[in-house]
């Protein structure tokens, strides 16, 4: 009797585990299939990549697509540099502006503090395109259209609210006694921010910066709208503008470029994924 019950329980557990693994496998295939397709196509010849009946893997693997990126007529390196420069500048600008803002939201007691915080969140929830027209007009009036500075302004506008909220959660985690000890030691607010708080939230600054960087890197619509000179374009926009033509699409070249576009993002993500999760979830658990 007891053995039969134990067997039944063991069977249920096994079934539950099998269902778990199947679910995980499905999720993996679902999310990794496009990445695999991108990688596989980047190593296919032009003819193989354009076949109507696609091959699951490169029959004759080649590096021609990658060579073509750097040796061809397209300024791929310029696209890459443009992207790195604008995204890095965006991350730095966002972190510099967001740090005192997050500190104020976390520590200062002022009227409308909560409302200010929520207003930022609401702003963040607006779709990218909603800001497109006003930002376009602003950049036009500031004569920043078709410049990298204008692009940084656009990226930072969208990245800042999230940066402030994420950094606020890191500041919240700094024990208030540490700051009060610095006040007793005679330091002023801004000195405490830079000499005590900032060193303690360095991982948070790095994580937030990386997040803003990644978001800017993925942004397609702003460069397409604000930048008109091809040589000034960022990678995602350049992929769309240069590899799809009226009569043919260079799938192999596009996938090689997409691989090189994705690579820095993946490296950045894996470098900060732990502290990113901590930043997003801190405060959810007591003592976190």
């Amino acid at each position: 009797m007891m053995d039969a019950a134990a067997d039944r329980r063991g069977g249920t557990r096994r079934t539950a585990r099998v269902v778990q693994y199947v679910a995980i496998a499905l999720a993996l295939v679902w999310s990794l299939a496009p990445v695999y397709w991108m990688l596989a196509t980047s190593f296919k010849t032009e003819l193989e990549a354009a076949r109507l009946a696609p091959t699951p893997w490169p029959l004759r693997p080649t590096l021609d697509n990658y060579r073509g990126l750097f040796g061809g007529s397209l300024p791929f390196l310029a696209f890459f540099v443009n992207t790195v420069v604008t995204c890095l500048a965006t991350a730095i600008v966002a972190v510099i502006i967001a740090t005192p803002a997050a500190y104020a939201l976390s520590r200062a007691r002022f009227r409308l503090r909560a409302a200010t915080g929520y207003a930022m969140l609401v702003f963040r929830m607006l779709p990218l395109v909603v800001l497109l027209a006003p930002l376009y007009l602003l950049l036009l009036n500031a004569r920043l259209l078709d410049t990298h500075t204008g692009l940084v302004v656009g990226f930072a506008t969208f990245g800042l609210p999230f940066a402030v909220w994420m950094l606020k959660s890191f500041v919240d985690a700094v024990p208030i006694e540490v700051e009060e000890a610095a006040r007793v030691d005679g330091y002023r607010r801004w000195q405490i921010l830079f000499r005590v708080v900032v060193p303690l939230i360095l991982p948070g600054l790095l994580t937030t910066g990386t997040f803003v960087f990644m978001e800017a890197w993925n942004n397609l619509i702003y460069p397409l709208t604000f930048v008109t000179t091809l040589e000034k374009q960022t990678l995602p926009a350049a992929l769309v503008l240069t590899f799809t033509g009226q009569f043919k699409t260079d799938w192999g070249g596009m996938m090689a470029a997409a691989t090189l576009t994705t690579l820095p993002l993946m490296i950045a993500f894996f470098a900060v994924q732990r502290s990113m999760v901590r930043g997003l979830t801190s405060g959810a658990v007591a003592g976190a």
């Binding site: 006694e177 540490v178 009060e180 000890a181 007793v184 005679g186």
Partner: peptide, 29 residues
Amino acid sequence: DVGDRDIAMVFQNYGLYPHMSVYDNMAFG
């Protein structure tokens, strides 16, 4: 202001600066 009252305080949770050495903690003020 608290910094000008010529006081020193020991906190319940110590309130030590985690990113500084013991020496720097003591020398900071």
